[in-house]
Design a protein around this nucleic acid. Structure first.
Length: 121
DNA sequence: GCAATGACGCTCT
DNA sequence: CAGAGCGCCATTG
């Protein structure tokens, strides 16, 4: 069982009309902070795949630009078809469309918050 | 096994 | 919210 399988499994259960962030999917897939691998896995996704990969977006609620221009527009189109509202800049209001995972993280997260540079940029 | 890569995330400015 | 920087981590060469 590769991590891809887990990622796909998580993406597969994203409800229609909802979106999830890469980090969200990564955490649910057990990859933790390997949000990048989620995108990497989706990139390796074969054509004809029925996975709702278009429901996976970045933390800002925006569709991450990929190598092939135009594909991002396609993703936005798919989201609109599902009822997800996109603003002028093609962004999704995560406060309203973010998928609620079955096991939400406790707000009182332990010192595991070492994410990011944690240091002045 | 090591080095490079990448659909990202978080914090600070 | 947007932009800039550094970090994390699995997959690939």
């Amino acid at each position: 069982m590769t991590n891809y399988e887990r990622i796909y499994a998580v993406v597969e259960r994203i409800p229609e009309g909802r979106v999830a962030t890469y980090g969200q999917v990564a955490a649910l897939a057990g990859l933790g902070r390997a949000a990048r691998q989620v995108g990497y896995a989706l990139h390796s996704l074969p054509d004809g795949s029925e996975l709702p990969w278009h429901r996976v977006i970045n933390s800002r609620g925006e569709v991450s630009p990929r190598a092939m221009p135009g594909w991002d527009g396609y993703q936005r189109h798919l989201l609109e078809e599902e009822g997800v509202e996109l603003d002028e800049r093609g962004r999704v209001d995560l406060d309203r469309f973010r998928w609620e995972p079955p096991l939400p993280r406790p707000t009182g997260e332990k010192g595991l918050r070492r994410s990011g540079s944690r240091r002045r940029a």
